Computed example of a mutant assay.
Amino acid sequence: MFQIIGIVMLFAMVFGSYLMGGGKLDVIIEAAPHELMAILGAAVAAFLISNSMVVIKGTAAGMGKIFKGPKWKPADYRDLLSLLFLLTKTMKSKGVIALESHIEKPHESTIFARYPKVTHDHFAVDFICDTLRMMTMNLEDPHQVEDAMEKQLEKHHHEALEPAHALQSMADALPALGIVAAVLGVIKTMGSITEPPAVLGGMIGGALVGTFLGVFIAYGIVGPMATRLQAVVNEDGAFYKIIQSVLVAHLHGNAAQISVEIGRGNVPSPAQPSFAELEEALAQIPPE
């Protein structure tokens, strides 16, 4: 919502100030189509040249994240903590054997089935199950497990940020591509040097529109979108850090209730459930 408001304000403030200063939109409107074709066409071409298909698809999907915001909401963090509570409690009270059926086939698990949004996230499920599987194979050193989990998180986060970096690279290139479009306009103008000053002035003004559009789109639209996408990815990444903190706390010998409380403390403040809210959520879990 705020992103749409920001874009509307951007156009209103920039073009409003131009009109208030006595500027006329005729030159911009006339030059914009072919200038945008050169600038945006070249930017998209450079984007395709410099990125893999995975990053291209990720960037397309990331455009929705820019406007929708983070995937994980406060209720999802409560669900995740409840899921981890059930898994660690089962492991502690019933042993490794009772847990194996849940982590080997999580999509058939009665525990995972209670939290469908978490279960539909492939990385979250794999991250939980792979870590618990390591524990069932007697890898019980908390520091080793934490280190292994940290490497997985770093890899996932690095890959998730690639679309944002690709967008930022496009934003960095747009001012230079605007200059390219402007130079082409100047070349065209120089080829018509015998024309009257009024005609040459219009042609030079049209050429400068390319520089304006390149800078305007880069710093007003694409750059902020890249920053926003990076912020959303970072916020979503906190969800997976909770898994790490709870499972490592469990390995240190804490009770399931204490482990999820440690995880609750690491939930980002806007989405963090209170102690009472988490207690209520855990109390509402039906017995297995």
Score class of each variant (00 low, 15 high):
96 V>M: 07
196 P>S: 11
268 P>Q: 08
33 P>N: 04
220 G>P: 06
114 R>F: 09
262 I>S: 02
30 E>A: 12
112 F>P: 05
102 H>A: 01
46 A>V: 14
116 P>V: 03
219 Y>T: 08
284 Q>A: 13
257 Q>Y: 12
63 M>E: 00
192 S>T: 01
97 I>F: 13
180 V>P: 07
47 F>T: 03
178 G>R: 03
174 L>D: 06
72 W>R: 03
54 V>E: 09
173 A>E: 10
278 L>D: 03
179 I>K: 06
121 D>K: 09
86 L>E: 12
255 A>H: 09
58 G>Y: 09
186 V>I: 14
144 Q>E: 15
64 G>Q: 06
234 N>K: 12
166 A>C: 11
267 V>D: 00
72 W>C: 00
140 E>P: 05
106 P>Y: 03
260 V>W: 00
141 D>C: 06
57 K>A: 13
93 S>M: 12
75 A>P: 03
133 R>K: 13
253 G>Q: 07
43 A>V: 11
101 S>C: 08
3 Q>M: 15
177 L>T: 05
152 Q>W: 11
44 V>H: 12
143 H>S: 14
35 E>N: 15
230 Q>A: 12
148 A>F: 14
215 V>N: 14
226 A>N: 02
116 P>C: 12
199 V>A: 15
71 K>H: 10
187 I>L: 09
95 G>V: 06
130 D>I: 03
140 E>L: 15
